[in-house]
């Protein structure tokens, strides 16, 4: 791959199950990620994805495309709109830097409210 190459988009439907199962799998027990009543009482529309999951999904999106040829060396995420159940999180990716052995991929995860995450992922040939 080289600078300017684009990753195929990935559309991930957000479900309550996805939000809860990933929150628990990342050992994040904050109530806003599994208890809808409490989440809404704080003014949130619903439960929402936790940050560790967003980072995990960004990693998965990149490694799904690149396979096992590369190691992930860093993930830098800027968070935007929350990802709520019944929305769709659509990832897109662009190679923004590349050397013989490394690449940087800019990943944007979009929900209906706007960008949920803008990330830069560093990878290196294994």
């Amino acid at each position: 791959m080289q600078i300017g190459d684009t990753f195929a988009a990935w559309e991930l439907p957000i479900t309550p199950t996805l939000v809860v199962s990933t929150a628990i799998a990342t050992r994040d027990f904050q109530d806003v990620h599994h208890d809808r009543d409490l989440a809404t009482s704080y003014g949130s529309k619903d439960i929402f994805l936790n940050i560790l999951t967003t980072t995990g999904l960004v990693e998965r999106y990149v490694t799904d495309v690149l396979g096992e040829e590369y190691d992930v060396t860093g993930i830098s995420v800027r968070l935007g709109a929350p990802a709520y159940p019944y929305d769709t999180l659509t990832f897109s990716g662009d190679v923004v830097a590349a050397t013989e052995t490394t690449m940087e991929i800019k990943v944007v995860g979009q929900v209906s409210l706007g960008a949920h995450v803008t990330a830069t992922v560093g990878v290196r040939v294994r």
């Binding site: 799998a25 560790l52 995990g56 999904l57 998965r60 096992e68």
Partner: peptide
């Protein structure tokens, strides 16, 4: 548990390596 929830199917995670994004987990 993590790869199941994320839907990640990389085979290296079944062979003794952990996903990097799990560091904080």
């Amino acid at each position: 548990n993590w790869v199941e929830a994320m839907g990640d199917s990389l085979s290296r995670y079944t062979q003794g390596e952990a996903p990097p994004a799990m560091a904080q987990v």
